Amino acid sequence: MDLYWDNFNPAYDARELSLFKAGKTSDPNVKKYQKLLKEANRLIFIFQVWWNDTPAIIKGFIDKVMKKQFAYNVGATGVIGHLKNIQRVEVMTTSTSPTWYLKMFCGSAIFSSIQP
């Protein structure tokens, strides 16, 4: 998937937002990405770091594609994942900020969000 090549729109329009609660979509790119995700066993994110954060297009991809009822549901004891076919996820990033700066002052956005 190449979000830029596909002209993926990370923002919700009114129609798409009205379908959010039901876990549905009107975006053809989202439908295409969901089909690809159902068939994948590995997911690799490659993106540049903008202002020490994930780009909006990646955040929009996660918000619009990894929908409730598609990627997960909420059960009595917590989140139930549906994409069990994906065995591995890798994240590769680039940045113009020096690595020492990112480690010392920004930390790991991935690990800090999953650790208590």
Rank of each mutant, 00 (worst) to 15 (best):
I114P: 01
D27T: 08
Y101S: 10
K68P: 00
Q34F: 02
K84W: 01
L3C: 06
N9L: 01
K67C: 03
E16T: 10
L83A: 04
V89M: 11
K84S: 11
D2W: 05
G60H: 09
I80S: 05
P116S: 09
K64D: 03
N7L: 10
V65L: 04
P28E: 14
A71G: 11
Y33Q: 06
I58V: 15
S108N: 15
D53P: 00
G107N: 08
K103E: 13
C106N: 14
L37Q: 02
L43E: 05
K24F: 05
D2S: 13
W5F: 14
T77L: 08
N29M: 07
Q69H: 15
T77Q: 14
F111T: 12
V91D: 04
V79F: 06
V65D: 02
T54S: 12
N41G: 12
D63M: 06
K31W: 00
K103V: 12
N29D: 10
N85G: 10
D63I: 05
V79Y: 08
V49C: 07
D63V: 03
V30G: 02
D6L: 15
Y33L: 06
W100A: 14
S97D: 13
A71W: 03
T99S: 11
N9C: 09
P98S: 10
V65P: 04
M104C: 07
Q87P: 00
R15Q: 13
G78L: 06
P116D: 07
T93Y: 08
I114W: 06
F45R: 08
S97K: 06
K35S: 12
G107Q: 08
A40V: 07
K38N: 12
C106F: 02
A109P: 06
A56D: 02
Q69S: 13
Y101P: 00
F47Y: 15
N85L: 00
L3K: 07
K59F: 04
I114E: 03
R15G: 00
P10K: 10
